[in-house]
Simulated scan of single mutants.
Amino acid sequence: MTRLTGILLYSMGISVLLSGCAEMNNTEQTPTSDEFLISVLEYNGEGYALPYGKETDQIAEEYREEIEAKTIKFFQENYQTEIVVHNVVGALNGATIFVESVGEPHFYTNAFVPVDEKEKKVMTDQISADNFQVKNAIKGGLYHMIFSDEFKKLDKHFESLVADDVTGKTLESLQNVGGHGFQTPYYFISITNKETALEPVYELYMQNPEESVKHLRATFEDELFDATNLFINIQLFMAEEKEKPNTALFDELTQELEGMDEIPKGSYSFVLNDHFIDKQSASGMGEHSIDMVGHIIKE
């Protein structure tokens, strides 16, 4: 893995957990032990862990129902969005709450609840979220909504690949330890703070969550869209356990992507991993991974 990719994926969404739990395991810093590796086809998020979260995880589990109810209320009041809670994972001084939106715009994100280890208490009245992260998750879901035809073509392409040499993550892993905005088993959308074309779409949605897709699309500022501010981050895995990523296959998949027309606009990054995921960090990045960042720009 190149250093550039590691930095980009970290900053754009791989490890975008809240401040109390952002020190999640990083395979580039700490080599993954084979005992923590699991088939990407079997991984559902079980075994995921954050530093210093063992004790808070147990405490948070005792408050699970209250955490779920308060988190649902938090997203309704602050983002006019109905969500479902999939997982709660202990972290330093608190717990990370992994959620998924109900309906459209579709996205995954997370919130944070403080935990007092000494008092063995969870402060559910202090649930919070990183506003930039949640806002961009919603914007990514809105981008998918208003350009659904383009995304259908992209999705169909990846679905056809799965029958051959590569595969993606399981839906359960996205739900339980995803949290990266709009996400499918094959890619996720990340947006920089310089992106402005989606801003009026987001504002209209926040004013009226029932607004039609047609009206949302009409507010998209096409002339302001800069493909370098919106990333479609592709992450594929080798379908067979014994197969390792190879340059020939990587180049072939890259060329296919480059040659595709009428797919969503944006900068495409591409990572091809081997067959395994580190179940503690939910990352497939490893010594065998091959990557390409931002070389494919669709405008």
Score class of each variant (00 low, 15 high):
Arg64Ala: 09
Glu66Asn: 12
Glu66Thr: 12
Glu66Gly: 05
Ile67Ser: 01
Ile67Tyr: 00
Glu68Cys: 12
Ala69Thr: 11
Ala69Glu: 13
Ala69Leu: 13
Lys70His: 04
Lys70Tyr: 03
Lys70Asp: 00
Thr71Ser: 13
Thr71Cys: 11
Ile72Cys: 12
Ile72Leu: 10
Lys73Ala: 11
Lys73Gly: 05
Phe74Ala: 02
Phe74Asp: 00
Phe74Thr: 04
Phe75Leu: 12
Phe75Val: 08
Phe75Ser: 03
Phe75Glu: 03
Phe75Met: 11
Gln76Ala: 13
Glu77Ile: 06
Glu77Phe: 05
Asn78Asp: 00
Asn78Gln: 01
Asn78Glu: 00
Gln80Asn: 15
Thr81His: 07
Glu82Thr: 13
Ile83Cys: 04
Val84Asn: 11
Val84Glu: 14
Val85Ser: 06
Val85Met: 11
Asn87Met: 09
Asn87Tyr: 05
Val88His: 07
Val89Cys: 03
Gly90Ala: 10
Ala91Gln: 08
Leu92Gly: 08
Gly94His: 00
Gly94Ser: 02
Thr96Trp: 03
Ile97Arg: 08
Val99Asn: 02
Val99Met: 06
Glu100His: 14
Glu100Val: 10
Glu100Phe: 13
Ser101Arg: 03
Val102Tyr: 05
Val102Asp: 05
Gly103Tyr: 02
Glu104Tyr: 14
Glu104Ile: 14
Pro105Leu: 07
Pro105Ala: 07
Pro105Cys: 07
Asn110Ala: 07
Asn110Leu: 10
Val113Ile: 05
Val113Gln: 00
Val113Trp: 00
Pro114Phe: 05
Pro114His: 05
Val115Cys: 04
Lys118Ile: 14
Glu119Gly: 06
Lys120Val: 13
Lys120Cys: 10
Lys120Asn: 12
Val122Pro: 00
Met123Thr: 09
Thr124Trp: 10
Thr124Gly: 09
Asp125Arg: 04
Asp125Asn: 11
Asp125Glu: 11
Gln126Lys: 13
Ala129His: 01
Ala129Lys: 00
Asp130Asn: 13
Phe132Arg: 14
Phe132Trp: 15
Val134Trp: 00
Val134Thr: 06
Val134Ala: 02
Lys135Val: 08
